[in-house]
Design a protein around this nucleic acid. Structure first.
Ligand SMILES: [Mn+2]
Ligand SMILES: [Mn+2]
Ligand SMILES: [Zn+2]
Ligand SMILES: [Zn+2]
Lengths: 134, 134
DNA sequence: CTTGACTTGCGAAAGATTATTATTTACGAT
DNA sequence: ATCGTAAATAATAATCTTTCGCAAGTCAAG
């Protein structure tokens, strides 16, 4: 099977890269629709699947009900705001995480998913304010 | 609001603890149904939510479409087979993972989720066999 | 026994993703 | 440039997981 670079696929890829974020399929759909009003949500899903199979993007398994997609291909971790569900990249030095490489529990290890959870600066402020009101 | 320990709730809790695994709501439903044929799936979902709010079990945010529930309350991580989706506990020493405590990127850190991915022993064997056939 | 808060079972609804299908399109070969 | 065809699209239906709404049931306190 050979990949064709259709207008839709190109646009989806471009918008994901442009955003620098971790968009869900429907967020991406809303953005792409600005330029291609007739595109279908299923097309966005289909292409995100195809593009991640082709290792041109990454599908993130992350907290929350919706899957998110990342245009950054190099390995990295994420930090997640438990309040507003914002996701940001987290660059950890090699000394920060020492994981069993090779094997553990008889498993052949292929990777890891590390998600640090916390409160983002914006949500911290909101909470501080709401406490003052009380 | 006070929790009542109903038969259904007790059974759900018992079966989750008995399994020692990381069951999804519908897996648990199937098991409980053996003893309580008239129980509703919604009751299982409702109680899993209530029990995890009450910190009697933990709801896991992990790879896969379905949420999974854990009867082990102490902090621990997981290892996940990318082939058969089995999930096992992973006890990592404090020296294994050094994460930014306190804050990073302006976030107030509240926790972490670490998921090591790999191939379980069973799936390794299966793959080795299928290669031999070729 | 009566009251009222907590629960249940059931069906419907919601939300996210995938499948189906008729039609269109990209692109290598002619 | 045109053609043939496999790949892709739009629209829609279907599926899967989880939650919701509500009438009926349960239980503890008074
Ligand atoms: Mn990222
Ligand atoms: Mn566990
Ligand atoms: Zn936030
Ligand atoms: Zn496996």
């Amino acid at each position: 099977m050979q990949l064709r670079m259709t207008n839709q696929r190109e646009m989806i890829l471009r918008e994901l890269k442009k955003s620098k974020g971790h968009l869900s399929a429907d967020e991406l759909y809303e953005r792409v629709k600005k330029f291609m009003p007739r595109i279908s949500l299923a097309t966005v899903y289909r292409n995100l699947e195809i593009l991640s199979d082709a290792r041109m993007i990454r599908k993130l398994e992350i907290s929350g009900r919706q899957k998110r997609y990342d245009s950054v291909l190099v390995d990295h971790d994420h930090i997640y705001c438990v309040e507003c569900h914002r996701i940001e990249n987290l660059e950890l030095g090699t000394s920060d995480v020492k994981l069993p490489v090779g094997e553990a529990k008889g498993y052949t290890i292929t990777g890891r998913r590390l998600e640090v959870t916390g409160l983002c600066p914006v949500c911290q402020k909101k909470i501080t304010k709401s406490k003052k009101i009380k």
